[in-house]
Every structure is written in C-alpha cells, then in structure tokens.
C-alpha cells in the first residue's frame, strides 16, 4: 500500500511543487493550509510522514504545530510520525537549528526552493 504523506503549507504553489514529485513517486498525498486544518488532517488522514512549513498564519505556526505533534505533551501516535520541515528560515535567520536541537522536535529539514530529488531522498530515508 502506498505510504501517506501530508503537506501542511499555506502557499498553494509550494504545495504543488511538493506534490508533483511525491505523486510521481507513488505516494498518497493530501494537503492542509493552516495549523488547525493540519492538526485535523493528521487525525483523519493518519499520514506516515508530514511535510510542514514554518511560516503560515503566523511566523512560527510550523514550530508550534511541531511542538503539538512531537512535544512532551503530544500523543504517542503523533510522536511516531516523522516531520520534515520546509524552511527558508534555516538559511537566513539568526535562528540556527538542526534536527538534533531538542526544542525543535522534527526529523528533517528541506530548504526552499525545494529540489524534488533532495525532497524524495530525504523522505525515502525517513520512511525506511
């Protein structure tokens, strides 16, 4: 059965750019455009992996959602779903972080602009 991937990003063009390579690689893809709808989709769609944007309705919506899904108070079933964070912040703000930093509980990062090959490589690695 195809693995399920949920994209949470409020930019429809970015969603499209992520969706294309994922679908052609055979993943089942769904998208959500805000923190709340994203959280609802995690419950309904039960994805195997989440691709999450940092800046949505607020500059830190992605961080907050990552905390809700993987933070100390999160449900065990949510903690098991790997999160890949899509961000341009990674390169250019004073907030430097890598997946090892425990205050940002995500499994991987992918930089904008998104390179389809890199994206697929990262996802394959996490879904192994």
């Amino acid at each position: 059965m195809a693995k399920k991937i949920l994209i949470i990003d409020d930019d429809p063009d970015v969603v499209m750019a992520i969706r294309m390579p994922l679908e052609s690689a055979g993943y089942e893809v769904q998208d959500a455009h805000s923190q709340d709808s994203g959280l609802a989709a995690v419950e309904d769609f039960k994805p195997d992996l989440i691709i999450l944007d940092v800046m949505m309705d607020t500059h830190t919506a992605g961080f907050q959602l990552a905390q809700k899904l993987h933070g100390p108070a999160a449900k065990e079933e949510h903690k098991a779903i790997p999160i890949v964070m899509v961000t341009a912040v990674h390169q250019t703000t004073p907030l430097r972080f890598g997946p090892d930093d425990d205050y940002l509980p995500v499994e991987g990062f992918i930089d904008k602009p998104i390179d389809p090959k890199t994206l697929l490589g990262e996802i394959e690695k996490l879904l192994k």
Partner: peptide, 23 residues
C-alpha cells in the same frame, strides 16, 4: 525580504519540478 523570498522560493521550486521532468 521575507515577502520577497516567499514567491521566489515557490517559483524556483516549481521550476525545478519542470526541469527534472515531473511536469
């Protein structure tokens, strides 16, 4: 700059899809 970067990032992401044959 953030406002400038968002559309650029989206446009370039779409371009890469075309370049790599996904479209």
């Amino acid at each position: 700059t953030h406002e400038l970067r968002a559309p650029l990032g989206a446009a370039l992401s779409l371009m890469r899809n075309i370049e790599q044959g996904y479209a």
